[in-house]
């Protein structure tokens, strides 16, 4: 089992439904967010190109956050999902410093909070909240270890990229061109 996400950047309109769905589903405190939208513009006028990226924790294969955590609060559960046990977190900030994607933040209660791939929904066979609400269906979630899953086929057949691969984290969110 290896959960991953594939996002079609050309279908994304930057509506931020995924951001709101996540905040609602996971009771994210006001002013905070576990996922966010980045607009990328390239070229010179009049030859401009633009696309959106919905970004979040990359649930990396090589996790600098889990490696640097001094208490083991940051850990990996089945399917490669990176999670934080609140009662083990001392709020030292090592994982926040370690993450090249700025995916982690201090929850107002002190512990570190981040995207969980909605593991409570995934356990029930549902998609994460962000994926399930996307109005353009540009986001896909599934198991990379299953060669017949939709996401495996998409990543196999479509040109894609990951964020900051040079940081050596082997991220598991793929952006389809």
């Amino acid at each position: 089992m290896r959960y991953a996400m594939a996002i079609e950047v050309n279908k994304c309109v930057g509506c931020a439904d995924c951001v709101v769905a996540c905040q609602t589903e996971n009771n994210v405190p006001h002013g905070y967010s576990r996922d966010w939208i980045v607009e990328i513009a390239r070229g010179e006028y009049p030859d401009l190109y633009m696309h959106f990226e919905s970004q979040r924790c990359n649930h990396c294969d090589d996790t600098p956050c889990v490696r640097t955590c001094p208490t083991g609060a940051s850990h990996i559960i089945e399917g490669g999902i990176v999670k934080v046990t609140h009662d083990e977190c001392i709020g030292c900030g090592a994982c926040i410093e370690a993450c090249p994607y700025d995916a982690r933040y201090f929850h107002p209660e002190g512990y570190v909070d981040k995207c969980t791939f909605c593991d409570h929904r995934v356990a029930d066979g549902l998609d994460p909240a962000c994926v399930s609400v996307c109005p353009t269906t540009c986001m896909h979630f599934g198991d990379l270890d299953d060669p017949d899953s939709e996401i495996s086929k998409l990543i196999r057949t479509r040109e894609n990229y990951t964020l900051i691969p040079e940081a050596g984290t082997n991220p598991q969110i793929f952006y389809l061109k």
Binding site: P70, T71, I90, G91, G93, A94, F106, G110, Y111
Partner: peptide
């Protein structure tokens, strides 16, 4: 003082994580 979840500081001493320099330091 710099910890954000101060009351849980004892969690540092429930484990030793060889990969984490902060655990070594503690």
């Amino acid at each position: 003082y710099d910890l954000h979840h101060k009351l849980y500081v004892w969690q540092l001493f429930t484990t030793f994580r060889i990969e984490s320099p902060m655990s070594w330091g503690a």
